Amino acid sequence: MQKIFYMLCCALVLLCGTSCEEHMDIENRPISQEVVTPNPKIEKLIQQARQGEIEAYEALAVCYRDGDGVKKSLFNMMTMYMLSCKKSGKDIEDIIKTLDENNPLRLLTEVLNHVRIGEAPQEAVARLRSVSPADAMIYDAIYAFECMNDTLASQQLLKEAEAKGSDIACVLQILLYEELGNQELYKQSLHKYADKFPVLYVKLGDLSMRDEKEGHWEQAAKYYTIADNNGMLTKRGARALSSAFRMLEKEGKIKCDPQEMARLEALVQYK
């Protein structure tokens, strides 16, 4: 069980204006309506987050927690807190412990943070079922996967949890497909959920960076830029985006803005 929760946290650590004057039509890429027309408060916080400001990450986390100016999202909340922790050196588990005792993420953590699923206290499971039935189905899905060795049942339970509104179930589906080595479903899921959870664009950028098809540098840059435009560019993503722009400049396709390249380099300096 602890491994599953660790995988979820690692996904956030690893995933997670344009950066060049000639920007390859990046600003015309399809993105969600929330990003196209954010309210002034969210737009300001995003611009501050793009500069790596810890307070902006934490403020955006609260916005995602409460649905203030953005669609309420446990995973996007956790993403912003993870980015804050990577910048400040804090522990994400300490942040989670400060959440309201009825926050689904805190309850889910209490249930999942055990070596084995059987060690999860049933009173905690019952409380999670009461507060967030959809997220409680994650417990059932992992139980099926870990204790019953029933991958199909686990996948179905995660899909049902997603249908009932669980953000975390969406991401665990991606991780499960990766764990099972199903690259087709893994990539399909990344594309399916990336608009909902923009940090996933970092992972799509990583896949494009490794691709050998013509135009893969441009595609990777577009993906990383979408994450950046949502204030969710991770240390890994900032480093990769910088590399992609340098390769494109070397090929004579763009001319990089030194100030933007310096901003990306500053984002790479996370702890």
Rank of each mutant, 00 (worst) to 15 (best):
G67H: 03
S73N: 00
V70T: 14
R116L: 06
N103M: 05
L108M: 14
F75D: 03
Q122E: 15
L105E: 04
Q51S: 10
L83Y: 00
T98H: 02
G67I: 04
A61K: 07
M82G: 00
A49F: 05
G118E: 08
A126K: 11
E119P: 00
L74G: 13
G67Y: 08
N113S: 12
R65C: 11
L83M: 11
L99I: 08
I117F: 01
E93C: 13
L99M: 10
V36C: 10
I42Q: 01
P104V: 03
L60H: 09
T109D: 03
D94C: 00
T79N: 14
V35A: 14
K71Y: 06
L74N: 13
Q47E: 12
R127W: 11
L105V: 09
R129C: 09
P104M: 06
S88Q: 05
P121C: 00
G67P: 00
A49D: 01
E123Q: 15
A124T: 14
R50S: 09
S88K: 06
L74A: 14
G67D: 06
V35K: 12
Y64C: 10
L112A: 07
S73M: 01
D91T: 12
Q51C: 09
L107H: 07
C85L: 01
R116S: 07
S84F: 05
P38F: 02
P104I: 02
V70F: 12
E101Y: 13
Y64D: 11
L83A: 06
M80H: 14
E123G: 05
L83Q: 09
L105W: 07
P40S: 14
N39Q: 13
E119T: 01
D66S: 13
V131W: 12
E55T: 13
V131A: 07
T37K: 12
V62Y: 04
R50D: 08
K41M: 08
L128E: 04
E101I: 12
V125H: 08
G69M: 11
G67L: 01
P121E: 00
K41W: 01
P121L: 03
V111I: 04
S73H: 01
P40N: 12
G52Q: 08
K87T: 15
E119S: 10
I54K: 08
I46D: 07
Y64I: 05
I46N: 05
R106V: 11
S84R: 04
G89D: 11
A59E: 11
T37V: 13
Y81Q: 12
G67Q: 03
T98R: 06
E119A: 10
Y81S: 02
I95T: 10
